[in-house]
Simulated scan of single mutants.
Amino acid sequence: MPTIKRIGILTGGGDCPGLNAVIRAVTKTAIHIYGLEVYGIEDGFLGLIQNRMRSLSWNNVSNILTLGGTILGTSNQANPQRFAIERNGKIEWTDVTDRVQDHLKANEIDALVCIGGDGTMTGAANLLKHGINCIGVPKTIDNDLEGCERTFGFDTAVHTAGECFDKIHTTAASHHRVMVVEVMGRNAGWLALHVGVASGSDIILIPEIPYDLEKICEVLYKRRRTGKRFSIICVSEGARPKDG
């Protein structure tokens, strides 16, 4: 296997807590422990496609540990396998993986560290098939990546959403209302499940279990009959009704 001398780091998809901490850790470890050069790729795969990269030094990543977002920028609309190119006023979807390979070769980057969720990991897997060395770092507040118990960003999302639910709880109780609160989770209900349990939500709806509207109403009416004058429903964005 060829010796790796220079690596590239990119962040893809939505931002979440911990991105800069990972960039910092990878950069400092690569420089201090392995003696590697590190390049930061701007705006995820878009930077690879457009050849926007810059050298990262020890000083570049100092004091970013507690910063939100990502110092490299990110994009969730730049899939090298299906990239939008305008020709003659029309959008054509084109595989530009060869362009990515050319840019990596021109910048003498031997391997990539791709930080992101399912879309970024899919993109990294495609590059791997084309002979590009890639390491994936699982990032998503949905906690929906196979092969890892917990993705970074998930714990902070649960904590932040939990604080919001605590505040909503008192408002619902004061005004005697049914509060329906949606959290992220298109295909996986981990966030809704953890937040719902932690906040004491009365009903939790997740994508994995289609819900029955009549049963939801039964639960709400039962609570009302037992003297409970408010209810909180935690809904994952991907929750679906039965036969719906």
Rank of each mutant, 00 (worst) to 15 (best):
C16I: 06
M179N: 08
A173G: 00
G238D: 13
L36T: 09
M53P: 04
W190M: 03
T160R: 03
G227C: 09
E149V: 12
K242A: 10
R225D: 14
N133Q: 10
F154G: 07
I109E: 09
S75H: 04
P2Y: 02
T160V: 12
I232R: 13
L220A: 12
L65H: 12
L65V: 13
L36E: 07
H175S: 12
V183G: 10
A84Y: 01
M1W: 04
E42Y: 12
C134N: 03
I206M: 05
V178H: 07
N143T: 07
L104I: 07
K167S: 11
R186C: 05
T70N: 07
N76F: 02
N88Q: 12
P207G: 09
L220S: 12
A25D: 13
I91C: 05
G119I: 03
E37V: 11
L104H: 05
G12Y: 02
R186D: 05
V96Q: 01
I85W: 00
K105G: 02
G200Q: 01
R229K: 14
F165T: 06
A30D: 06
G119W: 01
S231R: 13
K215N: 15
I64N: 09
A25H: 11
T97L: 07
A192I: 13
T122I: 04
W58D: 15
L19Y: 07
I71K: 11
N143K: 09
N76H: 11
H32R: 14
L213P: 12
Q77M: 02
D98F: 04
V195A: 00
M1K: 08
T94Q: 15
V22P: 11
G136K: 01
D202A: 06
N59H: 12
Y34V: 03
K129T: 11
V180C: 10
A161I: 07
W190S: 14
G73E: 04
T3G: 02
I23Q: 03
I109L: 06
H130R: 12
V195P: 14
Y39K: 08
A172Q: 06
L56S: 08
G147Y: 04
D144F: 04
L19V: 08
I91F: 01
I49C: 04
C217Q: 14
R6S: 14
I33K: 14
I132S: 07
R24D: 09
R24M: 15
A173M: 12
E237M: 13
A124P: 10
A173W: 03
L36P: 00
V183T: 15
C234A: 15
P241T: 07
T29W: 02
A188E: 01
E218H: 15
D166R: 08
R52V: 13
K215V: 14
L220R: 11
G153M: 09
A21V: 10
R186E: 04
A192F: 14
S231W: 09
G119A: 06
P2T: 04
P138M: 01
D118Y: 03
L56A: 08
D43L: 00
I4S: 03
I216L: 15
V197C: 01
H175Y: 14
L10F: 06
E182Y: 10
